[in-house]
Design a protein around this nucleic acid. Sequence first.
RNA 1: GGCGCUAUGGUGUAAUUGGUUAACACGCUGCCCUCUCAAGGCAGAGAGUACGGGUUCGAUCCCCGUUAGCGCUACCA
Length: 484
Amino acid sequence: MPGVRVRFAPSPSGSLHVGGARTALFNWLFARGQGGRFILRIEDTDRERSSPEMVEDILGALQWLGLDWDEGPFLQSERLDRYRQVADQLLSANKAYRCSCSTAELAAKRQAASASGKPWKYDGTCCGLSSDRSAERHARGLPGVVRFKGPRDGEVAFEDRIFGRIVHQAKQIEDFVLVRSDGMPTYHLGVVLDDLDMKISHVIRGADHISNTPKQILLYRALEQPVPVFAHLPLILGPDRTRLSKRHGATAVNTYRDQGYLPSPFCNFLALLGWSPKSEVESLSTDELIHQFSLKGVNKSNAVFDLEKLSWFNSRYLRNAPAERLFPLIKVELDSEGLWNDEFDSSGRAWMMKVIDLLKQRVRMVSDFATQGRAFFTDDFAIEDKARRKFLKSEVLTVLMPELAARLESLTAFGLEETESALRTFAAEKEVKAGLLINAARALLTGKAVAPGIFEVMAALGQERTVARLSDTSWMEDEPRAGE
RNA sequence: GGCGCUAUGGUGUAAUUGGUUAACACGCUGCCCUCUCAAGGCAGAGAGUACGGGUUCGAUCCCCGUUAGCGCUACCA
């Protein structure tokens, strides 16, 4: 479908949250799949809440996700003249009027209405004012807003691509504000004009905008312009089925990035919130998402954000990714943990790849490389309590481990076969189970109760470090430290 | 309160737009593998489709009501 133009239009009043990311993703997938254009627009007309820092934050999050835009970012704050021009046009066409009701007055009326259980909607006090009179008041500098003058009867309906036909009665739509008293346009004026000017063909946004759509359609009518296709996305909720908020844990995309989640599995997971592919295969690359995405696959009911499933996607991606691709990410991680060594990228690069392949098998997030894999990157690591309790409690180990170390030291080759047969032979001689020695070695070599296969660990560590760690007897005196 | 929308296992979603033992994935349980933990393999528990009425030979699917949840109800988006 050529001519497809979609947009993502966040408000920079906070960082990009998962709901916004999902909306951006669906727009992007749609654009890419249809050969259309993806436009980025920043809706910063609320001067109180918007900040340039948040714009940067949002752009950064989109880039991280890999959602590149074809046009923009356009800032609404740079299009103020345009909004005013159209507001004036509406004013002179008698399709809008100036209103000088104060916020306090309105609040009082609203209050009174709700106290008596009556529905409230702007009562049109200023609508009746003659244009001369309101122009005069405006000229006198009386603060006020511009309101849209809506129809009193008839219905406003549209065919939502996801929700189907939505109908509202015109009489229940109030004369909403188009221009604030500070001269800034409101959301409704802004979106409609921008979507028009930017020739947006499909408005794909959160379902929280369904109720706003009729107002906007009224505006399109007043401007005598055709309306775009609307497609509203079901919302993302927290585990308790209320709107997702900080209360439920992380909501900012950047937090997930910082915790070690990766863009590809993150998008894969997000795509499945409200959308499902035709096939039963859920694990999809970004390219596959692009090819399979369609608005028809989007459902109407709200979805709960399930961290467990996200983690599964992430660990699965990590496990299957080539070490080369993971390397730069791990480098950043090790660097921030003070574990980076330039040799890892030069003489030790091949070794590094081997270690990554070993570690990636049982990792959920990138940050796990630094925690679970610490002992591979530095000799400065502690034996965690759990490993000590599980694997080092047998008395015989105090004499066996140094002996095992000596045995391994005498090996002339240090491959998987050599170390394994040496250890098993030794265990047989001493009449202990190989597992006892293996697990003790795990604790001593990695400091962890969970690690890759022990002979692979030895091979990765090398003979020298392996022997050194196994013969070091300081662990025998150490008291288990709390909190490890 | 008013208006709108939604409702399939714990979670995300399927189900030739009325005919299935209601499917898949995450999670969960057990077993196998085994040096730990994952991964993998195998087996399993878990929904009769929110509830109540219709329409129909037959409803997850169509209609009505109820309930619940969500959204809008701002000079926020």
